[in-house]
Design a protein around this nucleic acid. Structure first.
Lengths: 220, 220
DNA sequence: ATGATGGACTGATACACGTCAGTCACAGGT
DNA sequence: ACCTGTGACTGACGTGTATCAGTCCATCAT
């Protein structure tokens, strides 16, 4: 893979300590190798909105660098390993490998599509639908990299993460999870998500994984 | 500008008739020349979530084409004029002009940043803050292309558009607009947005136009 | 053992916002 | 002159979710 030529060095970060801070203007971006991270925005009153989670294979901080300023922060949810590269090198590489540009653009489009889905969740679905849709999307993404299936997956998130992601209070997250569990759809417990009725969930949330499909130019 | 070499043909579309339908798999993308459009997602129960508005100078439908399927629809809010181009040509052009790739990637990042702001609006701000933030953002974007200022701007949107954008009911949009008007912050009336207290609005919404700044590679 | 910490979980209460069911003004068409 | 449709606007009422104020159970450090 062409990106290999850009690889600078392997680094690790511990859970909970931000890699990128809102407002920072830095030059390094990363590719996540193991663990989970999340990107979020902090509001003045202390609330936060988690925008997206990153799992192995995803870019970290690419947008910050392209826009020359970080409009958000990135926190490792677990301990993570990343590969650092310099965006200037990436942009230079476009000259030699135009297909690389197409691939990166495709990855950015996919990221945007996920944020759009997330927006629809928060804007137009009730708490249970949001939760179900979110758990399905993460599951589908993990399945693509071999870390999950239609039965379930390991999930290091706390209910607070879910609350900050879905625009709910942690208290309400708990109620909604109970509701989903009692109606036999999905269980979130002890770091593990278990799907009891995958098709039922898909129908409830109109879930369509089309935008996640790995038919992007990276793999062609 | 390099994009000029791609220009295919000028087209017009009338207000209200979708250019792109959810699920469509087409090859053309557009650059908006005059008028306003919006991209939105439709839910099965008839609700819709408007994701973003496009104003002159913005790409239309680029993401659909990159992902090979439209996960959303695009509707002209007013009559619009667009310039059509084929994405295959755009990608080919990357080979001759790598800087073009950087520019397009930058534009995509800016789009994503706007969706992220929108997500924070809907997830973590109350109705009045959302409304104010949205009106400010559109104002800032219009100001960049000379169609608005800190005093206000012409705005062809209906209160239904605002409702579908902000995840509110049209009824509540009306209440919130009244509230903002009566507290002397901003007036939305007769197709015109008038800022009465721009700084007050900025403070209320923590508005930071950094991510909109035209310091992207397109103009460098 | 003891206390501190963090995550899961719960009941009671409050309110922001949605829904329902309208009115009013205006524009176009017949 | 009348109908139809669209957008703005409003009051009454219902509900989903936040907030408050806890409990309980692990884990970890002392």
């Amino acid at each position: 893979m062409v990106l290999a030529s850009l690889y600078k060095r392997r680094r690790t970060f511990v859970a909970g300590r931000d890699l990128v801070h809102q407002g920072q203007t830095d030059q390094a971006a990363y590719i996540l190798f193991s663990g989970w991270a999340c990107s979020y925005k902090l509001l003045e009153d202390g609330q936060r909105q988690i925008v997206d989670f990153q799992i192995p294979g995803d870019f970290l901080g690419l947008r910050s660098v392209l826009l020359h300023v970080s409009d958000h922060s990135i926190e490792p949810v677990t301990d993570i390993e990343v590969t650092e590269f310099h965006v200037a090198d990436l942009l230079d590489a476009f000259a030699q490998t135009p297909r690389l540009a197409t691939a990166v653009l495709w990855a950015a489009s996919r990221d945007e599509a996920m944020v759009v889905e997330h927006l629809v969740d928060v804007g137009r679905r009730d708490a249970a639908e949001r939760m179900a849709h979110f758990l399905l999307e993460i599951g589908a993404r993990l399945a693509l990299i071999g870390l999950g299936s239609k039965d379930g997956y390991a999930c290091p998130l706390t209910q607070y993460h879910l609350a900050d992601t879905l625009g709910l209070s942690a208290v309400h997250v708990n109620r909604v999870l109970r509701q989903l569990r009692e109606s036999g759809l999905v269980t979130f417990r002890d770091g593990h998500v278990t799907f009891h009725d995958y098709d039922g969930l898909v129908e409830l949330t109109e879930f369509d994984p089309g935008y996640l499909d790995q038919t992007g130019p990276l793999l062609k």
